[in-house]
Nucleic acid binder design. Structure first.
Length: 565
RNA sequence: UCCGGUGUCGUCCAAUGGCAGGACAGCGGACUUUGAAUCCGCGAAUCAUGGUUCGAAUCCAUGCGCCGGAGCCA
């Protein structure tokens, strides 16, 4: 807490340091204006969340600071209003508010065009009337300088006339482009007369058929920043190479108080792909059920999986911001969600793979109301009552006929606690013809109501249960990592065949039936779950998605001891 | 190979010429009516070589590794 930066939700990172310095020195007139600039051609993912947290966090460094939401919609071929809506929804859900500052690069098409004519008039831009291949060939490469276009020295009048024809739709697609006149010999390939406009006779989702030419990213982005008065244009590392061009345009246009581009390392996550192209492929080829499939690293998918905005923000804060191009271990994300859910989710009991357990000496018809904490060590969260009777379901996994050392759960002759209810001992194991265990016959210690022995003897093992007469049936979807490889470079090869297991006939404690969709709970000893946003219908159909299992140190131990399951 | 960026515990991030620190992961223990959580403890790093300096992760030089760049994508 001695470090004030911790209180600002922007723990030490080099961008925030810069903003603080500028604030102190008054370099930018005390202004902090950032922007989050998605192209509406896909859903936002956890990598975008990092950027969103950074940009909004930076703006929060100053009381007057603000962060704009700007849709970078300069390529109508791939963009759509569906994505605009999804992006707005996701950012809001994450907990950020851009107020009235919602903008679109397409709002600036007129201004951009006027500026383009201005550059033509200054002799800083020209129309190149050659096909794509010719332009590409004369650009040169890493070792070879480019060659000037034969059209490079057209007169201002001719350039203007051609540019106007491009705009009016009088020229064919691909027949001409507007290029900035910089330096075909530059070592920096981005400066070899970059394209500003291309002809695209495509309907734009906002401007309709008004335009036949659309600006390229480099021509649109910095200028949009300038129009909005952005002070810090924060982007990811792959744009470092664009910065000289970014600044060239601003200078050519004589923009006062030009925005400043600052690059940081975008998020890479192990066992995850964070490329819009690949995510789109997963959706289109139906390897997942959609953009909001709970296995997707999209905001929408994570939301449906049961993640909280708080956990995602804590994750973003904790991984920090730098110019290193690293890969964050998903373990960091998993820790963040467990940390939040542990403190906030109400506890319930549920048996995923039921095994019947009958207490032979339980008084006929007796129902005991077990009182359990909603959240242990949190008095404000209160308690709940859970009905317990002589016939309950326990987890198949919690019983072993030949128990290894250090097995504290159900086994023949072993006394175990049914959480909050009773101490029981297995006397008889009932099997079917196939030799499978179908039922456990137990006796209970009538002096152990609530789960404590009257004589104070310690019982190490505690197991969860659901009363057979009161249980609610449910479908439970167990999600695991979408990819089996930490680096899923070859996308399809790396897919985890077991990323989804759908369980039916699960038995849950009664209260769960009435939970509204998107309710997050912990199933004790099992994991964190959320009622599905689409398929869970209160009072009718219970559908749970597993967000993440609880840590399981027994599994670790068992593995070490070589216990087979 | 040219231009640019970047090299610190297994991973991510700090240390802004002055004791290399935190988080996650791992390991050990305590506690436990969740084998969860919590608590305590342990191990673990400055790419290499040379130089400047009383003192270098930090400055300089050389080398090496990794990433990005030759879309009418963003």
């Amino acid at each position: 807490m001695s470090d004030p930066r911790e209180d600002e939700g922007q723990p030490g990172n080099f961008v925030a340091d810069r903003v603080r310095e500028d604030l102190e020195s008054g370099t930018k007139g005390g202004r902090v204006v950032t922007r989050f600039p998605p192209e509406p051609n896909g859903y936002l993912h956890i990598g975008h969340a990092k950027s969103i947290c950074l940009n909004f966090g930076l703006a929060a460094l100053s009381p007057e600071g603000r962060c704009h939401l700007r849709f970078d919609d300069t390529n109508p071929e791939v963009e759509s209003p569906e994505y605009v809506e999804a992006i707005r929804r996701d950012i809001q859900w994450l907990g950020f508010d851009w107020g009235e500052h919602e903008y679109y690069a397409s709002d600036y098409f007129d201004q951009l065009y006027a500026w383009a004519e201005q550059l033509v008039k200054k002799g800083l831009a020209y129309v190149d009337s050659r096909p794509l291949e010719a332009i590409r060939e004369t650009r040169g490469d890493f070792h070879r300088p480019g060659e000037n276009s034969p059209f490079r020295d057209r007169s201002v009048e001719e350039n203007l006339e051609l540019l106007r024809k491009m705009k009016a739709g009088e020229l064919e697609e691909g027949s001409a482009v507007l290029r900035a006149k910089i330096d075909m010999q530059s070592k920096d390939l981005k400066l070899r007369d970059p394209l500003m406009y291309r002809i695209k006779k495509v309907t734009h989702h906002r401007t309709g058929d008004t335009w036949s030419i659309y600006p390229m990213y480099d021509w649109a982005h910095g200028q949009s920043d300038a129009i909005e008065g952005v002070t810090y244009s924060v982007c990811s590392l792959e744009f470092v190479n664009h910065r000289p061009l970014y600044n060239w345009f601003l200078k050519a246009l004589e923009i006062e108080q030009p925005p400043e581009q600052i690059e940081f390392g975008r998020l890479n996550l192990s066992y995850t792909v964070l490329s819009k192209r690949k995510l789109l492929q997963l959706v289109e080829e139906k390897h997942v059920a959609g953009w909001d499939d709970p296995r997707m690293p999209t905001i929408a998918g994570m939301r449906r999986r049961g993640f909280t905005p708080e956990a995602i923000r804590a994750f973003a804060d904790r991984i920090g911001v730098s110019k290193n191009d690293g890969v964050v271990d998903v373990g960091h994300l998993e820790y963040a969600i467990r940390e939040d859910l542990n403190e906030t989710s109400f506890r319930k009991m549920g048996v995923l793979k039921p095994l019947e357990l009958e207490i032979t000496n339980w008084p006929e018809g007796k129902v005991y109301e077990a009182e359990l904490d909603n959240i242990p060590k949190n008095d404000e969260a209160g308690t709940r009552k859970v009905p317990f009777s002589g016939r309950v379901f326990v987890e198949q996994e919690d019983f072993m006929e030949d128990a290894p050392k250090k097995w504290w759960r159900l086994a023949p002759g072993k006394e175990v606690r049914l959480r909050g209810a009773a101490l029981v001992t297995v006397n008889e194991v009932v099997k079917n013809d196939a030799g499978e265990v179908v039922k456990l016959q137990c006796t209970w210690d009538p002096e152990s109501e609530g789960g404590n022995a009257a004589d104070g003897r310690k019982v190490k093992g505690t197991v969860h249960w659901v009363s057979a007469d009161h249980a609610v049936d449910a479908e439970v979807r167990l999600y695991d990592r979408l990819f089996a490889e930490d680096d899923p470079s070859d996308l399809l090869e790396s897919l985890n065949p077991d990323s989804l297991e759908v369980l039916t006939g699960c038995k849950l404690e009664p209260g769960i039936a009435d939970l509204p969709p998107e309710s997050r709970i912990q199933l004790e000893r099992t994991g964190y779950f959320v009622t599905d946003a689409r398929d869970h219908v209160p009072g009718e159909k219970v559908v749970l998605n597993r967000t993440i299992p609880l840590k399981d140190s027994w599994a670790k131990l068992a593995k070490k001891m070589g216990v087979r399951k």
